[in-house]
């Protein structure tokens, strides 16, 4: 499936598009409660991430599947993942 080299192993892309994209989407959703504006009714930061979860996952999944630059994709997803994990860790501690 790798566009640059068809003989490249598939598992790095599967790992990125599968568990990492799902985990990253889940953490972005949960972390969204911390950085999204609360809105006029004070609920947007709680409601919008839940609403957007399928879209967040779909964008990450297709990006991971289609990108030519797998390393860049890993870097981006891991950065998003770590930033949100850190923010959530601080909030819950």
């Amino acid at each position: 499936m790798s566009p640059k080299n068809s003989r490249a192993p598939l598992w790095p892309r599967w790992l990125l598009a599968g568990p990492l994209a799902a985990l990253c989407a889940a953490l972005i959703m949960a972390g969204g409660a911390l950085w999204l504006p609360r809105g006029a009714a004070g609920i947007d930061n709680l409601v919008l991430p839940i609403l957007a979860f399928p879209a967040i996952w779909a964008v990450l999944f297709f990006y991971a599947c289609l990108t030519r630059h797998l390393r860049r994709a890993y870097a981006l997803l891991l950065a998003l993942l770590l930033a949100h994990a850190l923010a959530l860790g601080l909030q819950l501690s």
Binding site: A26, M29, A30, G31, A33, L34, G42, I43, N45, L46, V47, P49, I50, L51, F53, P54, L88, Q91, L92
Partner: peptide, 29 residues
């Protein structure tokens, strides 16, 4: 959205913003 909101979204958000109290979160929303 409907499936994940009940199974995962609401509990996760309640954990982040209401220390796991889903009732409190639903009341606030």
């Amino acid at each position: 959205y409907f499936s994940f909101a009940s199974a995962f979204g609401i509990p996760a958000m309640a954990m982040v913003a209401f220390k796991g109290d889903q009732e409190a979160m639903i009341t606030a929303i």
